[in-house]
């Protein structure tokens, strides 16, 4: 299992990935829970037959096998048809599905520059580096009701730079799009793709989309990005809270609202967790005061027991 980690310079995304985080990325590997069956060469474990890199076994020829997979030299020796099976590494397509609705512009008063979208950009940049290092194919989709900003999947450093340019151009505005607008997603996000959804998870439609994608054999990872204010509600005094997407306002005293809010928000998060678990979607949460690779560590850390891929 030769993994070539290209020695990339990473100038383009220098500001997106802090050096400490970049150092920690070495311990991460994008992987899927189930084997894939797509052609090509990648890191993912596969039971596909054919010209693989590592020989697995011979088995008897069965009608329907590709004549190219028959080992003709063995046939010459043994006069019987054997099919050479290989443990093949097929490539993975990683999709970054980024919520670009106005709620992604949320940040904390302490650090107004670090918006949810900025954190999503950093996570996406990390994933791009990982995918590039593993030789996977990857693409980026950003969605809001102004339209779908889709960069078709590709591989290589130029594809990474294209993706980074698109990430930089992203702006958080509008709301989550309606279902019809999301139709192009189904054409591009092929089955067995690894889809990382970067969102706040506040849009019901976004969660529903994740569920439907997961039901249609896409492997989903939900990375929920929450601000410190949403987690701790540390505000003091009288506020006019305004929803950036709908413009609705709630007036009140922060201290008085705190307990009720925290309880309801914790319940909502638990609900989301259980919904996603039911659909087989892994959920990882990043709070804006944490290092950006926190959810990736949760989802993709090398574990001694599992290793890369599953045999």
């Amino acid at each position: 299992m030769a993994v070539h980690v290209p020695d990339h310079d990473g100038q383009a995304d220098f500001d997106l990935i802090p050096p400490v985080v970049r150092a920690r990325l070495r311990t991460l590997h994008l992987r899927m829970r189930r084997p894939t069956h797509t052609p090509g060469i990648g890191l993912q474990s596969s039971r596909n037959q054919g010209p693989g890199l590592e020989f697995a076994q011979y088995r008897a020829y069965q009608p329907g096998d590709d004549p190219r997979s028959v080992d003709w030299k063995l046939y010459a020796r043994s006069d019987r048809h054997f099919v050479r099976e290989a443990e093949r590494e097929s490539p993975l397509t990683v999709w970054l599905l980024i919520d670009a609705s106005a709620s992604m512009a949320q940040s904390d008063p302490d650090n107004p520059a670090l918006t949810r979208l900025a954190a999503a950009r950093s996570i996406a940049a990390c994933v791009l580096e990982l995918a590039l290092a593993q030789g996977e194919r990857f693409g980026v989709v950003a969605v809001n009701d102004r339209g779908i900003d889709l960069l078709p999947a590709g591989s290589g450093t130029r594809q990474r730079d294209r993706c980074l340019r698109q990430l930089h151009a992203l702006q958080a505005q509008g709301q989550w799009p309606d279902e019809t607008a999301l139709q192009p997603l189904w054409q591009h996000l092929g089955a067995n793709a690894l889809v990382l959804l970067l969102s706040d998870g506040f849009d019901e439609a976004g969660v529903a989309l994740a569920e439907r994608l997961a039901a249609a054999r896409r492997e989903l990872r939900f990375i929920q990005i929450l601000s410190v204010g949403e987690r701790d509600f540390p505000f003091r005094g009288d506020f006019r809270f305004r929803d950036p997407e709908t413009g609705d306002e709630v007036l009140g005293n922060a201290e008085a609202m705190r307990a009720d809010y925290l309880a309801r928000f914790a319940e909502a998060r638990a609900q989301l967790q259980s919904r996603l678990t039911a659909s087989g979607i892994d959920l990882a949460t990043l709070f804006l005061d944490q290092p950006v690779d926190t959810p990736l560590q949760q989802l993709f850390a090398d574990r001694a027991a599992t290793g890369v891929g599953q045999r």
């Binding site: 709620s103 949320q106 949403e230 506020f239 006019r240 709908t246 008085a256 809010y261 309801r264």
Partner: peptide, 21 residues
Amino acid sequence: RSERQLMAFAALRWLRAKERA
């Protein structure tokens, strides 16, 4: 003093208006 500070808050759905008792 009674003028309220405006705060963007995306998780508004879980917020219920409540004044100081």
